[in-house]
Design a binder for these strands. Structure first.
Length: 440
DNA sequence: TCTGGGGTCCTAGGACCC
DNA sequence: TCTGGGGTCCTAGGACCC
């Protein structure tokens, strides 16, 4: 529901809001995952719908506004959401479907301008300064986008229009759902300064606490405090916030951003203290990471592992390789060495493990020096063949022997490998705590 | 309250080199 | 031989975003 002070979107006479000085749009789908589910099942319209179960110890992915009215929020455990809103329909996510809808929505944006910077599946920045002559003012373009998305996808979105990126993002959040909010350049500070400090992009729980300690509760408070005070308390982030509070944001809309790292991580359905199970998980995650690298046409120099203990304390260990790689076998060997050298107790109970590859560069041209006995080219070819088989027959068709159920062979990066046990199955199958209850 | 998985960016200390 | 300072890289951790 739009806040009472939100300017009404189309004025009764159809007049467009003043958008002078604006050229950035932030488009955000409303309750994206839940909206897509409702679109597919019209009988759910107007009822509380919760898409939940992001992981094996699930949290909520998205909820319709009807469910949100009961206090259901994303990043909330599904069990808690159920207590808040037992009458809601709980739906397991269908990621493939959301990906399809996202591609179609992004195609709508790109039909407006090539200057589209996706932020996630369901939101993007657009710089429409080059589209004015063809399509009209930014406010008119925003209206056009909202109409097209609704017509083509049957879901609603909200659009913020502003002179700078972060203000457009705040504006779209302030007019949800199904809204349009234009912040003309002349009104920028008048719009920003009454907002709570947490509205600024980059103010999370920690920064909000620090600001509250300084007595700074609104964006205007931040703007009027000496810059040096913010720098002392928050470092570079302090200066960043102060600049934003004065409506300045030099960041441009960047159509394609280079990835800085790729990785994979997984929470175990129950805490694990068996090193063999942990190594097998590292093998699987190394395979996914290597696959992502090859799909992106990249090699990586730095491999890191993330280990989250049962207590939720998280440690990371990383190593920079002499030569960059996209080979699962090399990533796995490094990840195992990092895990074994982590200094954790041999039977430490782990909640989550992760593998990440950073220091990316294009694979083409990343020639490498071969040492005697080193066969990376052979492994790379083998893994590329695996990619092709997986593309053709599905990712379940082929995987390392150690990951097949019933196979007793342990993953062995080197001489330290030993006997393994039954692998953990996919998180999703473990986490069947959700069900469809269309009758409720 | 009992916490997913994908990321980005910043900080700080230490090693190393010139 | 001992010393200083700056730059760069590596590593670990943490805040933050959706």
């Amino acid at each position: 529901m739009p806040a009472p002070d939100t300017p009404a979107e189309p004025a009764p006479d159809g007049a467009l809001p003043d958008d002078s000085g604006c050229h950035v749009l932030h488009v955000d789908m409303d309750a994206f995952y839940a909206s897509v589910e409702v679109r597919d099942r019209p009988e759910l319209t107007g009822r509380p719908v919760v898409v939940g179960g992001l992981g094996p110890r699930s949290v909520v992915l998205s909820a319709t506004y009807e469910a949100r009215a009961f206090g259901v929020r994303s990043a909330m455990p599904v069990g808690r959401a159920r207590r808040l809103c037992p009458q809601a329909v709980y739906i397991p996510p269908r990621h493939g479907l959301y990906g399809e809808v996202s591609r179609e929505v992004m195609a709508v944006f790109r039909s407006i301008t090539p200057e589209v910077e996706p932020l996630s599946l369901d939101e993007a920045f657009l710089d429409v300064s080059g589209s004015r002559r063809r399509l009209g003012s930014p406010a008119r373009i925003a209206r056009l986008i909202r109409a097209q998305v609704r017509e083509q996808q049957g879901i609603t979105c909200s659009v913020g229009v502003a002179p700078v990126k972060f203000a457009a993002k705040i504006a779209s959040a302030r007019c949800k759902p199904d809204g349009l909010l234009v912040v003309p350049a002349a009104d920028l500070l008048g719009f920003l300064h009454p907002l709570p400090a947490s509205a600024l992009w980059g103010v999370g729980e920690h920064a909000e606490d620090v600001l509250a300690r300084l007595g700074l509760r609104t964006v205007g408070d931040i703007a009027h405090v000496p810059l040096a005070t913010l720098q002392r308390e928050l470092g570079a982030a302090g200066e960043h916030l102060w600049t934003l509070a004065w409506g300045r944001d030099e960041r441009r809309v960047v159509p394609q951003r280079e990835e800085k790292s790729v990785g994979a991580e997984e929470t175990f359905p129950a805490d694990v203290d068996d090193p063999e199970v942990i190594r097998r998980e590292l093998l699987r995650l190394s395979g996914r990471t290597a696959h992502a690298l090859r799909a992106a046409g990249c090699v990586a120099r730095t491999i890191s592992v993330k280990l989250r203990l049962a207590s939720f304390k998280t440690i990371t260990r990383s190593r920079t390789l002499a030569e960059p790689t996209d080979v699962a076998r090399e990533i796995y060997a490094t990840a195992c060495a990092l895990y074994e050298g982590s200094g954790l107790d041999a039977r430490a109970r782990l909640r989550l493990v992760g593998v990440r590859a950073a220091g990316l560069r294009p694979a083409a041209g990343a020639a490498r020096q071969l040492a005697f006995g080193d066969r990376p080219a052979g492994w790379r070819e083998a893994e590329r063949a695996v990619d092709q088989i997986a593309r053709r027959f599905g990712s379940d068709a082929i995987r390392p022997a150690a990951l097949f159920p019933g196979d007793r062979q342990a993953p062995s990066p080197g001489p330290s490998g030993s006997e393994g046990r039954k692998p953990s199955s996919k998180a999703w199958e473990e986490a069947r705590i959700l069900e469809n209850e269309p009758g409720i």
